[in-house]
C-alpha cells in the first residue's frame, strides 16, 4: 500500500516535472521542433493544438506568418490556390536563402482541419494571411490586405518586411511553361511547313496575311491591352439587369471591348464591300466579268448601310460614355 502511494507520488511528480520542463524549456524546444518541421516542409500545416502551442502560447521569440485558407475542392475557393502558390514561393525563398533563421516561420491553417481556429480568430473569409509578432497581439495591420497590395509573392514579401524587418528576396522557380509553349508552337509551325514543303503557296496568300493584320489592329484598337493589364469584369451585374457598357470614359468591360471590335470590323467590311463593288483596286476586269450591275449595286448599298449604321452605333456608344459630347449621327 505504501509502495503504491509512493508509486503514485512518483508518477505525479514525474508528470509534474515533465510539465515543468516543457514550460521551462518550452521556447528552445518549440523552436527546435519548428525548425525540424520547416526542414521537412517550408510551410508548417497547423491544426488546433499545434496552433495553440506554437502560435498562441506565450514563450515566443519568433514571428509566425500564417495563411488561413480553404483548399478543399468542395469549398470552391479559386483564389486560395493562387495565394497558396505565391505564399509557397515566399516561404521557399526564405527557407533556402542565406538569411534563413529561426526568427520567422511560415504556417498554414486549412478550414477543414482547423475550423475552430477560424472561430477563435473570428475569421469569416479565406484566404487571409496574418502575422503573429513575437511580442504582443496582432494589430489590424498584421493581416495582409490583398485588395491593395495584390497577391504576388513580391507583395507578400514586402508586407512581411514591413511587419518583421526580414527582407526576403523572392526567388521564383524559373517558369519554363512560357518557353515550352513558344518552343512547341515553333516546332508545330516548322513541322507543318516541313510537311507541306512541296506546296508552300499558302504562305503567299495575301488575303490571309491581310486578315491577320486586321485582326491584330481590331484587337489593339478595341483596348484588349487595357483589359489584359487592368483585368476588368466581363460585364457588370447591377440591380437593373446586366450593364454592358461602362459609364465612364476611363474604364471598359471585356464584353464592351468585344462589341467595339465587332462594330469596327463591320465598318471595315462595309467599306471593303463598297470598294470591291465599285471595281476594286487593281483588277476590275475579273469583278466586272463575273458580277452584273444589279448585284454590284446591291453590294454597294449594303456596304454603305453597314458603314453608316455601325459607325453611328459606335458614335452613340462613345457619346454615352463621354460626358458632354455633342455630336451624333443617325442614332442618339
Amino acid at each position: 500500500m505504501r509502495f503504491k502511494h509512493y508509486l503514485i507520488f512518483t508518477i505525479v511528480l514525474t508528470f509534474y516535472k515533465i510539465d515543468a520542463q516543457t514550460r521551462a524549456k518550452g521556447l528552445e524546444e518549440k523552436v527546435q521542433q519548428l525548425t525540424d518541421l520547416t526542414a521537412k516542409k517550408s510551410i508548417i500545416s497547423l491544426n488546433y493544438n499545434r496552433f495553440k502551442d506554437y502560435v498562441k502560447a506565450p514563450p515566443r521569440d519568433y514571428s509566425f506568418v500564417v495563411m488561413f485558407t480553404a483548399m478543399a475542392p468542395s469549398r470552391r475557393c479559386a483564389i486560395c490556390q493562387h495565394v497558396y502558390d505565391e505564399f509557397l514561393v515566399v516561404a521557399n525563398s526564405f527557407r533556402f536563402s542565406q538569411i534563413y533563421n529561426n526568427k520567422l516561420f511560415f504556417g498554414m491553417v486549412d478550414f477543414d482541419e482547423g475550423s475552430d481556429i477560424f472561430q477563435m480568430l473570428r475569421l469569416n473569409t479565406a484566404p487571409v494571411i496574418m502575422h503573429f509578432p513575437a511580442k504582443g497581439k496582432p494589430k489590424p495591420a498584421d493581416s495582409m490586405d490583398f485588395e491593395r497590395a495584390g497577391i504576388h509573392a513580391e507583395a507578400i514579401a514586402k508586407w512581411i518586411q514591413d511587419r518583421t524587418d526580414v527582407q526576403i528576396r523572392v526567388f521564383r522557380p524559373p517558369n519554363y511553361s512560357g518557353a515550352v509553349a513558344v518552343a512547341t508552337l515553333f516546332a508545330l509551325v516548322a513541322g507543318f511547313l516541313y510537311l507541306r514543303r512541296n506546296n508552300l503557296e499558302f504562305l503567299y496568300n495575301k488575303q490571309m496575311w491581310a486578315g491577320a493584320a486586321l485582326m491584330f489592329c481590331f484587337t489593339m484598337v478595341s483596348g484588349q491591352m487595357w483589359n489584359q493589364i487592368r483585368g476588368p469584369p466581363f460585364y457588370h451585374r447591377s440591380k437593373n439587369g446586366p450593364v454592358y457598357i461602362n459609364g465612364g470614359s476611363h474604364g471598359q468591360f471585356v464584353l464592351e471591348s468585344y462589341i467595339v471590335a465587332a462594330l469596327n470590323c463591320s465598318v471595315v467590311v462595309g467599306m471593303i464591300a463598297m470598294i470591291e463593288a465599285a471595281g476594286g483596286v487593281k483588277n476590275p476586269d475579273v469583278v466586272r466579268s463575273q458580277v452584273d450591275g444589279k448585284k454590284r449595286r446591291f453590294q454597294s448599298v449594303v456596304g454603305l448601310i453597314l458603314v453608316c449604321v455601325f459607325f453611328s452605333l459606335l458614335l452613340s456608344v462613345f457619346r454615352a460614355k463621354t460626358q458632354g459630347y455633342p455630336y451624333s449621327f443617325l442614332f442618339k
Binding site: 495575301k206 486586321l214 462594330l263 465598318v267 467599306m271 470598294i275 459606335l314
Partner: peptide, 12 residues
Amino acid sequence: CTFPVGLWYCIK
C-alpha cells in the same frame, strides 16, 4: 474604323 481598310489594300 477606316484605317484597316487602307491596311487591307496595302497588304493585298
